[in-house]
Simulated assay, not measured.
Amino acid sequence: MTSRLPLHAEFLLLAHDDRSGRPLIDSTHLKAGLAGAAVTELTLQEALRLEGDGRSARLHATGRAVAPELEEALARADGRSPKDAVARIGGGRSWRDRAGHLEAATLAGLEGAGVGVRGEQTVLGVFHRKVWREQDPAVEREIVERLRNAVRATGEPDTRTAVLVSLLSATGLLRKVLPEQDKRVLAARAKEISAGQWGGQAVATAIQEVEAAVVAAVVAAGAAGASS
């Protein structure tokens, strides 16, 4: 594969461990990050536009066609605030696994492109769980190298790489993807990249709102888990 993957596909690919085939983060973090990546991808494709300011800001569909895997996410985000969009797509406010369809469709796309293959693993001879087996490691290597260059450099990376760094940092994946980097330095650089002025102002504002929504979802899940 020579073309760059959409953000939700890159995020999901990096979220799986190469050896075990299992996610590197828990389902809440995974769903929030995947939802945020999908909304951001729709914004970058200009299929969604943020209108209004502050609490009244809402995402609105522009009528631009999107890939089939993103159609449901687009419909759920239309007319919503970034925070509500992430919650509705990620299933943060529902007993339904709303992110499951997006995850399955994204992995199916990666499988069709020859990046990897979905499978099942038997645990204790009884339980079955889904796993992801990488087939073309060059794809992930290119993404990781791009991230590594972004956090090592002093300038601003391209918009898509900057967004990916921010989403990975918000969900706790960045330090897992780049374990050789000093954690404090990595966190500081991720914060610097998130605050950058990459992209147009309108798009940058929308993306920053989505990133904040992902962080809020992760924090809320952590607080709920601590109190239970």
Rank of each mutant, 00 (worst) to 15 (best):
residue 108 A to T: 06
residue 100 G to I: 02
residue 126 V to C: 01
residue 101 H to G: 08
residue 105 A to D: 08
residue 121 Q to I: 11
residue 116 G to E: 00
residue 124 L to Q: 11
residue 99 A to K: 09
residue 141 R to Q: 14
residue 101 H to Y: 09
residue 137 P to M: 12
residue 125 G to C: 10
residue 110 L to Q: 10
residue 133 R to H: 04
residue 96 R to T: 13
residue 138 A to H: 01
residue 125 G to A: 09
residue 134 E to D: 13
residue 118 R to I: 06
residue 144 V to T: 07
residue 142 E to A: 15
residue 138 A to Q: 01
residue 118 R to P: 06
residue 118 R to F: 00
residue 97 D to H: 13
residue 143 I to E: 06
residue 123 V to M: 05
residue 114 G to I: 03
residue 96 R to P: 08
residue 101 H to M: 08
residue 100 G to Q: 00
residue 116 G to M: 02
residue 122 T to W: 09
residue 102 L to P: 08
residue 102 L to N: 06
residue 110 L to D: 03
residue 130 K to F: 13
residue 140 E to A: 10
residue 144 V to K: 01
residue 134 E to A: 14
residue 101 H to C: 01
residue 130 K to M: 10
residue 131 V to D: 00
residue 110 L to Y: 07
residue 115 V to W: 02
residue 129 R to T: 15
residue 122 T to A: 12
residue 114 G to N: 03
residue 110 L to M: 15
residue 104 A to P: 03
residue 139 V to K: 03
residue 137 P to Y: 11
residue 145 E to P: 11
residue 131 V to L: 02
residue 105 A to V: 01
residue 139 V to R: 05
residue 143 I to K: 04
residue 116 G to D: 01
residue 101 H to R: 11
residue 104 A to Q: 11
residue 119 G to Q: 06
residue 106 T to L: 06
residue 127 F to L: 14
residue 101 H to P: 07
residue 97 D to C: 07
residue 122 T to Y: 11
residue 96 R to W: 07
residue 96 R to N: 09
residue 136 D to E: 09
